[in-house]
């Protein structure tokens, strides 16, 4: 039996000339870890271009675009009439549109840029909520500080915006998540009574929008679309096309529900009152000026009156004295003779 000798090599010999075994992948990893880590995406790079901010709802849907369109419509037109249309035919619509544009053109050429539009009621209601209860402060926030816009200086400190941070407050457009959440929260808490358009917003609706609040145009439109005693429809002799059957049938099926005048809700009577303001805005201003100048004239006459009465009494007294003197002179002459 051979002797069992434990033959121990010196440790230096084991590791000898070779480097200790390291797997290649690990070596790469260790090498990578020694280098300074590659910078993650730099905070000043925005993930959204300035013309495509993140939207609360998918922006490619028609609903989202309609929502945006209605917001701009509601913000840009101070005078909106709301009609319900009950199964109008296409020929009736064209007839009504033609008559309306003719009537408005008669009032004024420049201002006749109104729009008549059939709307998606539910989306309008939502857009109205956003418009009424969400007031983005575009000026205060400084829209210029958008990281991706070329107008921004490179030295400007900008907030970081990540794809998962679509609720970042730098996105304050009407479709943003911030607008949606703020509007729906405010609509629940602060809805002033009486200033509510929501009961009107159901069923088939059409809007007639004006770019300015002009009572003359409103009166012209009302006389065509919803004729009453105050706003009589054009006579058959004046406008024969208005009395065609298609137009008359269509107008019978249009119902004026109300109006939104400079953010305030008006019913039918209120709308007719606005339309009945004589001479429009200029007329109102002229009335106000007339009233104020009338007051001024009264004040001056009252102030003058004291001086005038004094002058009248003094004059009267002088006349009396002169008469007396004349009488004395006459009597003296008579005595001399």
């Amino acid at each position: 039996m051979p002797p069992r000798l434990r033959f121990r090599l010196p440790s230096s010999q084991v590791g000898g000339g070779r480097a200790p075994y390291v797997c290649i992948q690990c070596r790469h990893a260790s090498l990578a870890s020694t280098i300074t880590p590659a910078p993650t995406i730099h905070p000043t790079i925005a993930h959204y271009p300035p013309n495509q901010p993140p939207s609360h709802k998918p922006p490619e849907y028609r609903k989202s675009q309609l929502h945006r369109q209605y917001q701009s419509l509601l913000r840009s037109s101070p005078l909106i009439l709301i009609f319900q249309h009950n199964n109008l035919k296409a020929t009736e619509w064209t007839g009504i549109r033609r008559e309306l544009s003719n009537a408005l053109r008669k009032v004024d050429v420049e201002l006749a840029k109104d729009g008549k539009e059939i709307i998606q009621t539910g989306i309008l209601a939502s857009a109205l909520k956003v418009v009424e209860f969400w007031e983005p402060k575009y000026e205060a926030d400084g829209q210029a500080a958008h990281p991706a816009s070329p107008a921004t200086d490179t030295s400007t400190a900008v907030q970081d915006a990540r794809p998962d941070d679509a609720a970042e407050p730098i996105y304050t457009h009407g479709l943003s998540r911030l607008a949606w959440s703020t509007a729906s929260r405010n609509a629940k808490t602060t809805r002033p009574p009486g200033s509510d358009l929501t009961p009107l917003l159901s069923g088939p609706l059409a809007l007639l929008t004006f770019p300015t609040t002009s009572p003359q145009h409103l009166a012209a439109a009302l006389s065509i679309l919803a004729p009453t005693k105050e706003f009589p429809a054009p006579k058959r002799k004046v406008n024969a096309a208005y009395h065609e059957k298609a137009v008359q049938d269509g107008i019978a099926k249009l119902m004026l529900l109300g109006a939104r005048v400079e953010g305030r809700v008006m019913d039918m009577a209120g709308t007719r009152w606005v339309g009945g303001i004589k001479g429009g805005m200029e007329g109102l201003r002229a009335q106000l000026v007339g009233m104020l100048s009338g007051v001024g004239a009264q004040v001056t006459t009252i102030l003058e009156a004291a001086g005038r009465t004094l002058w009248v009494t003094v004059e009267g007294r002088r006349g009396m004295l002169e008469d007396e003197e004349k009488a004395k002179d006459k009597s003296g002459e008579q005595k001399v003779e």
């Binding site: 319900q84 009950n86 199964n87 035919k89 929501t198 009107l200 069923g203 088939p204 529900l257």
Partner: peptide, 20 residues
């Protein structure tokens, strides 16, 4: 009255159901 959220809506819906 169209401003009544309940009856106004019902009547307006009914009128919209009538044929052209």
């Amino acid at each position: 009255s169209p401003f009544n959220a309940r009856s106004g809506k019902t009547v307006r819906n009914f009128l919209a159901l009538l044929p052209p």
